[in-house]
Amino acid sequence: MTDSASGVPVVQVEGLSKSFGKVQVLDSVDVSIQRGETLVVIGPSGSGKSTLCRTVMGLETFSAGKISLKGELYAECTDGKHVTLGSDHKRRRLAMGMVFQQYTLFPQLSLRKNVELGPSKVLHLPKQVVRERAETVLARVGLADKIDSYPAHLSGGQKQRAAIARELAMDRGLIMFDEVTSALDPELVHEVLQVMRELAEAGATMLVVTHEMGFARNVASRVIFMDHGSIVESGPPGEILDHPQHARTRAFLEHIMS
């Protein structure tokens, strides 16, 4: 299930390190994501999960390491200060996207306009294609009837599904989900996870940072446990969640399950 046909990872992170002052937020992290994989990252808050997402996305700088997209250099830091951008950097926007914990829909735009913005202004697709794509992706997340609504009129779960639709409309190789259910009321979590689950089953490549152990167990192709900025262990969900090798993983799982 984890093995993918193509050998070149969609994203490969090697020796990624980052520090805020004296705090080491990422400590030589190595991760690679294969096409079609759902990689779930778990770990206590402050373990560097979100920072990993944000750094790969290019929202944060880093102090050592290398990030490659489909085998081509995207960003690298060798001297501890300056991040050198590979020739692939500009293609980042075509290669991956991200859904945030906070609902980041644009409040002044209807759902349709929110979803159409990227395809029309970034991808420069023809108007008709953009319109159809907006309708398709909103239907896919179950919001076809809300296409003309504004974000302020939606529930948290609907907003988050719309944010996923906006990302889907860009049709990029990798989607990162940065604790997308953490700000939701408990009864709204399920509808968002359901959409993500359907995406995973449809073969999307995803990196999911989450505290939802049920999702990790049922949907992940691989689970990574992070603590203090480094990867403690990784493997199939059954292995990590039921038979963790490290004491820190066991302590975290016991804490979160209790």
């Binding site: 929202l59 996207g97 945030f100 202004k121 970034v122």
Partner: peptide, 16 residues
């Protein structure tokens, strides 16, 4: 700040 970042992630340029 998340609004700005969301625009960035979407691929919009600074002026966009």
């Amino acid at each position: 700040r998340e609004q700005v970042e969301a625009g960035d992630v979407l691929g919009l340029t600074y002026l966009q």
